[in-house]
Design a binder for these strands. Structure first.
Length: 441
RNA sequence: UCCUCAGUAGCUCAAUGGCAGAGCAUCCGGCUGUUAACCGGAGGGUUGUAGGUUCGAGUCCUACCUGAGGAGCCA
């Protein structure tokens, strides 16, 4: 193979030249003495053409007997052709088969439809299909964009620990870990720790995995997922809402700019994404309750929503369906929210918090709040929630030594990817999803 | 934890209580422009597991296992 190695996504740069493509056989069609192998290299697909009278019998035979996903290095001349899916074809001159998938044990994932369980059981192979690869590229773009967003705004990345001594919020179920014969847990949020680094560096963020041992079985849940969490000293709830709408708009715009082709492969209606720009609608919890009660009267919602409760999944879906942009619901009753949230000075029964609900029924993708600044009130809340004060001693220190108003939020990467890609389920947004009843592969 | 649904060929699915079937994949043959190619042929089965009803169970009943969707909780 003497010709230069080409990348399929940029094969057009080599039009008229002989190139080497290193990849796998995606599919093979034949018509008599013509073979149409389609190769993939991780960046795209290109159709090869092999005519029996144009190559040696060895080359023709080698391609003719190729099986799906066999690894091959092929050499050929790039030619523009309107009949080809990518616009270019490869006139194959030679082929080197690295490993042929045996006839006796063919590649399990065919080009036909498959069931969810089968695909999940073969996730290590499923990621090779063009649609899954496109989703993973969009995920990578969203992660890169999120980091760019915060880096460009003067935030410092500070990584919180993954092994923690106690629950951060004391609400959800944690995965226990034996830590040298001491009980430890996998983190469910880095928030408490980045509150500490925010007091050191001003504007910080974390990006890392989080773990929830909840027995949730829905299209929105994973037991292991990734979160981006900014935390800002001297910031208020309003600052956070502005930051959140800025972040989401930035992520969407970046995907439209750089991953439009992948969104097309996935089948995303990008017209809906084009509308995502600031400002986002802001509604108070009180307003949300009114809307939900109207929804019940018109028959759109089964149960009547009473003031004081947390929003359920159908409630979130209903609210978000009323807007084309993400909607920010703020100031929930303090009783349904976490212990560390600052009360609204106008109405102390409310928490200065916000949930951002993505449109098209994707539900909550961001949750944030202004954090409690008062030492005494925080101690009181820790007791009210029956949390061990000893474990929060260091956290209380932050209120003892130069306490300031501060705020932050967390965005679930997988939910954001699911929304931007328009997916039915978050399990397709991460290479190897961890769910209830799913630890393999 | 609760509710609903589903387990039949490697995959996707059929089969009124009466002989276990099709498409795809694999193999063989045909076709010089195929687009999840097409046409002809071949091989491929402990119907999730264990019991029960029946002359006879993939089908009906009971329990269990596995998975999916939803609720609660959350990002």
């Amino acid at each position: 193979m003497s010709s230069p190695i080409a990348t399929i996504s940029r094969i057009g740069e080599h039009e008229g030249q002989s190139v080497t493509v290193r990849g796998w056989l995606y599919n093979l069609r034949e018509s008599g003495k013509l073979l149409f192998p389609i190769f993939r290299d991780g960046t795209g697909l290109i159709q090869g053409v092999v005519a029996k009278n144009a190559v040696s019998p060895e080359v023709f035979d080698a391609v003719k007997t190729l099986t799906q996903e066999s690894s091959v290095i092929v050499e050929g001349k790039v030619r523009a052709d309107k009949r080809a899916p990518g616009g270019y074809e490869l006139d194959v001159s030679s082929v080197q088969v690295l490993q042929k998938v045996p006839d006796s044990d063919p590649y399990p994932i065919s080009l036909k439809e498959h069931g969810v369980d089968f695909l999940m059981e073969h996730r290590h192979l499923w990621v090779r299909t063009p649609r899954q690869a496109a989703i993973l590229r969009v995920r990578a773009e969203i992660i890169r964009a999120a980091r760019d967003f915060f880096d460009e705004r003067g935030f410092t990345l500070t990584d919180p620990p993954i092994l923690t001594p106690a629950a951060c919020e004391g609400t959800t179920t944690l995965f226990p870990v034996d830590y040298f014969e001491e009980q430890a847990y996998l983190t469910q949020s880095g928030q408490l720790y980045i509150e500490a680094t925010a007091m050191a560096l001003g504007k910080v963020y974390s990006f890392g995995p989080t773990f929830r041992a909840e027995k949730s079985k829905t299209r929105r849940h994973l037991t292991e997922f990734w979160m981006v969490e900014p935390e800002v000293a001297y910031a208020t709830l309003d600052d956070m809402m502005e930051l959140a709408e800025g972040l989401l708009s930035f992520l969407v715009k970046r995907c439209l700019d750089r991953r439009r082709n992948d969104l097309q492969i996935i089948g995303r209606d990008v017209a809906k994404l084009e509308k995502i720009e600031p400002p986002f609608p802001r509604i108070s919890y009180d307003d949300a309750v009114k809307m939900l009660q109207e929804g019940h009267q018109t028959g759109a919602l089964e149960t009547k929503f009473e003031w004081g409760g947390d929003l359920g999944s159908p409630d979130e879906t209903y609210l978000s369906s009323k807007f084309e942009k993400p909607v920010m619901v703020h100031r929930y009753p303090a009783s349904v929210k976490a212990f560390y949230m600052e009360p609204d000075p106008q109405r102390p029964d409310l928490a200065l918090c916000v949930d951002v609900l993505a449109p098209e029924g994707y539900g909550e993708i961001i949750g944030g709040s202004q954090r409690m600044a008062s030492y005494d009130l925080l101690v009181q809340r820790i007791h009210e929630h029956n949390l061990p004060e000893e474990a929060f001693k260091w956290y209380l220190d932050l209120r003892k030594y130069g306490s300031v108003p501060h705020a932050g939020f967390g965005m679930g990467i997988e939910r954001a990817v699911a929304w931007i890609c328009g997916l039915e389920h978050v399990r397709e947004t991460i290479p190897f999803p961890r769910m209830l009843h799913r630890l393999y592969p």
